[in-house]
Write a protein that binds this DNA or RNA. Sequence first.
RNA 1: GGUGGGGUAUCCAAGUGGCUAAAGGAUGCAGACUGUAAAUCUGUCAGGGGUUCCCUUUCGAGCGUUCGAAUCGCUCCCCCACCA
Length: 394
Amino acid sequence: MENFDFRKTKTIENSRAHCGLIKTPHGIIETPNFIFCATRGAIKGATMEQMEATGAQCILGNTYHLGLQPGPDLIEKHGGLHRFMGWAGPILTDSGGFQIFSLGCGGVVDEIKGKRTCSIHPKSLVKVTEEGALFRSYVDGSHCWLTPEISVLIQQKLGADFILPLDECTPFHMQREQTALSMERSHRWEIRSMQQFSRTFEDRQRMYGIVQGGVYEDLRAASVDFVNDQPFFGQAIGGSLGGSREQMHDVVSMTMQRLAQDRPTHLLGIGGLQDILAGVEFGIDTFDCVHPTRIARHGCALVSQPENDKNREHINLKNRQYREDLNPIENDCDCYTCRNFTRAYIHHLFKAKETTGGLLLTIHNVRFMVRWMLKIRQAIQNDTWIQFVKTHKK
RNA sequence: GGUGGGGUAUCCAAGUGGCUAAAGGAUGCAGACUGUAAAUCUGUCAGGGGUUCCCUUUCGAGCGUUCGAAUCGCUCCCCCACCA
């Protein structure tokens, strides 16, 4: 019996949309599915018991953050990240490559989605060399190297089911030549990651490859060819996906057309409902994103039909209009929050700065994402996918 | 009753002659958030038109001084502390 397996259980004609099963030692992930971010070993705003109750199947942790605090050895002493944070299901750990961007050292590293800046915090990335990335710890100021080898060794101690190779996440406003050089470095790092992974291999983990190449079609093609040729269990699409939703969909589309189809494919960092709809159509299996849990803490609830702005995917419970709204967030939602509380109550909690407001919205948003993915899988299984897309596409 | 301190926009609170429609908070109103140093950040916040600008009414109340006052003087009204 294999510890790991991936197979498609349903495909759609004239579409790459499919249902699949990813088998891990900690259970099965039904795809398409959404992976929730527990960057530092916690879902911000929910316990693992609550996560399990929503039906979430997989959680993501972060090598850089957990490596820095509390450190891989302490987590290993707990028997790994599963036991440490109390999550029995599958876990994916990110390599820290994204932090090379998000904690970036200024200059070209300004944004990845075309607008976000890193001006809030002092820069803590010291330098990036062929060897790896040198960070200044935001915990105690000490310098720490994150190399492909170190990232893999940390991830082996964390013991996630799926791990990622260290990559260099390239920002959006980067010249083609620089993006090409960065992509090639990522490829070299991925090879080193794979070599380290093989040297210390245990049959409880598998590694995904990462496709880079920015928004450039030929670079994406080259990166896809690279990943296809490596013995990764699965593959992830990373890096800059463009400055607009349309461009993002174009980049994912072109990438997916060339990518091997017999492996599970993850789309890194994308979590908009429309983006997921498009991604599934292009053949993506799993997504991860901080968006559902972050906007929950900021007062926003994901909803199927926003009453104000149809272009949005959420309502802001802090808005005055919900002050005396006695309805649940959504009438047809079965989550703990919607079964027990009114919009007015949640509005009040946020106005009163009671943290329970964010917790309740987190539960709703997680359950909403779980149900959204469930609906997508059911539509594919029931051969109503084309119609589902027509109904829900905006 | 005496002495001292104080009354500034929705609230708290700077400001002691022009650069002040008035710092800074908070609240309020809205926005952003996509491999999380985000339970964070941004905008806006006297009123009315126009949103580059223009007009009107503001710093307990009234009256003065001055080219010009939230800022100086007088009177009054409140609040606080201490003393009787």
